[in-house]
């Protein structure tokens, strides 16, 4: 019997945390602990999540591989599947297959300073990488995290942002586009507006950019203007996906399938692919 690549594994929701307005973080454990034991992944990879009798959707893994035994998914309620997921309770069971995609470079960027630029829920996949980097802290130079949201209520992982800021040789800068409630003491403006506030050793820094396509577009322009080379800008691509396996064709760009050859690309690679972010 050959393995059926479309069959999801059952996972139990062990914890649900309200992350931000319209965003929840789900902790999942494989029902079959054997599968859990063998399950390994890289930051930046994603899974196809099944809400039974509703449908399936690709969701990136936000936990770090350094934490064994469970997975975390941070999910904004935006569609049919994610809204069904938001209605689930602890103890409920969902389906999961993966991990899929190439994931972020890790060893390849060791020795470098790391600049993270995230927008909204785009911090979720980066969080996986950030925590893994902090777990192997001595491999990297300075770690700068720039994070922006539309309004303060949308900021995810606030506790962790505070913790990361306190760690050695790291900095965390936050911004919001606007603050209707007027209770925000930090920076106001798009996330790119934080860039002039930090010192960057261009030759020795790799930038990871993740967020809504518009935000990625403008941040990349900012980085290029600062003098970053295309190879040193790493981002993720969002495309409609059905299978996650490079078969269904929805996420095809050039000879690549975003689900399999991506979703992580350097800006240099993206330029060669032709289509827009």
């Amino acid at each position: 019997m050959i393995e059926n690549i479309y069959v999801p594994h059952l996972m139990t929701i062990t914890k649900i945390r309200d992350e931000a307005e319209n965003v929840k973080t789900f902790t999942l454990e494989f029902k079959d602990s054997q599968i859990g034991k063998n399950f390994d992944y890289k930051p930046g990879q994603f899974g196809e999540v099944t809400l039974f009798n509703i449908g399936e959707a690709p969701i990136s893994i936000t936990s770090s591989p350094a934490n064994k035994g469970y997975l975390e998914l941070s999910v904004a309620n935006v569609g049919k599947v994610t809204s069904a997921l938001h209605q689930k309770n602890e103890g409920d069971v969902i389906g999961f297959r993966g991990p899929y995609g190439n994931g972020f470079p890790f060893e390849e960027v060791s020795g470098k300073n790391i600049l993270f630029v995230a927008g909204g829920i785009g911090l979720a996949p980066l969080r996986s990488l950030i925590n893994q980097m902090f777990a192997e802290r001595n491999k990297f130079g300075k770690i700068s995290i720039l994070y922006g949201c539309r309004i303060p209520n949308l900021l995810c992982f606030q506790n962790e942002l505070d913790n990361w800021a306190k760690l050695e040789n790291s900095e965390v800068l936050l911004t919001v586009d606007a603050c209707p409630e007027n209770d925000w003491k930090g920076n106001i403006g798009v996330v790119g507006s934080l860039l002039p506030n930090i010192d960057i050793d261009l030759e020795n820094t790799v930038a990871f950019v993740c967020g809504p396509p518009v935000m990625i577009h403008f941040v990349i322009l900012d980085l290029l203007k600062m003098g970053f080379s295309g190879d040193n800008i790493i981002t993720t691509m969002e495309r409609r996906m059905e299978c996650g396996l490079g078969k269904c064709g929805h996420c095809n760009i050039g000879e690549k399938y975003v689900c399999k050859d991506g979703p992580v690309f350097s800006y240099q690679q993206l330029k060669e692919l032709g289509e827009n972010i």
Binding site: Y6, N53, G55, C248, G249, H250
Partner: peptide, 25 residues
């Protein structure tokens, strides 16, 4: 052409069938 879409189609009160079917770019 090999592209397909996937749809979970209800077939009972608590049951569904996952279908894949031809899609068009």
């Amino acid at each position: 052409c090999h592209c397909f879409n996937i749809e979970d189609v209800q077939c009972g009160e608590k049951a569904s069938i996952r279908m894949r079917y031809w899609d068009s770019c």
